[in-house]
Amino acid sequence: MSGLQIVNGLAGLLIVTSLLVVVARKPSQSAKFYALQSLVLVAVFVALGSATNAPQLYVWAAVAFVTKVVLVPVIMARSFGRLSDERLGSGERISPAVTVLLAAVVVLLCTLIISGVTLPAAAGIKPALAISLAHFFFGLACIVTQRNILKQVFGYCLMENGSHLTLALLAGSAPELVEIGITTDAVFAVVIMVILATQINRKLATLDADQLTTLKG
């Protein structure tokens, strides 16, 4: 099993973990699953780093570990635990089964799209690339299909992980500072989202995105 195959396999694992994040009942549970997923991502970085002999990816992995496996899940778990909205229920627009199906379709579509790409950098890692893209879109689907705004935050995080992976796959050679900037952004984004969600919950006593439709027209 070559290094790249490991990368591809681990990437597949990402989809599974993200499904867990989406279908989890409680936000705090989702946060744990997200930590798990980020761990997988770190593993992918390491594997990729060794496979392509790109030492800077180890730095990436380290940074990702600190921020995504530790920092963000902790923040989320701590703040989300306090937020609740009884009326919301699960907040799903579609059932978990359909979500799984959706994930499958997205992966399939992305594989199709990526198969057409003729980028030299993407030669050996097409499956991983497809999955990273699928991951991104799956996160987007999460934002669209989940009414719970906390789940929407997770959706954003999934998207972010997907694009992060893409970045690593395609632009692994980019300077580290870039990666740090992106990660910082992600962390700040999550922080601000959490603060906003908290404020919304406090002010409007809801976590339902469908309640946030007073501004229209």
């Binding site: 627009r93 669209v144 439709t213 501004l215 027209g217």
Partner: peptide, 17 residues
């Protein structure tokens, strides 16, 4: 056209997609 601006976040995301 105001209907486009429905106020629903998920719809807005779908526009982008």
């Amino acid at each position: 056209l105001q209907i486009l601006q429905s106020g629903a976040l998920s719809t807005y995301c779908l526009y982008i997609v």
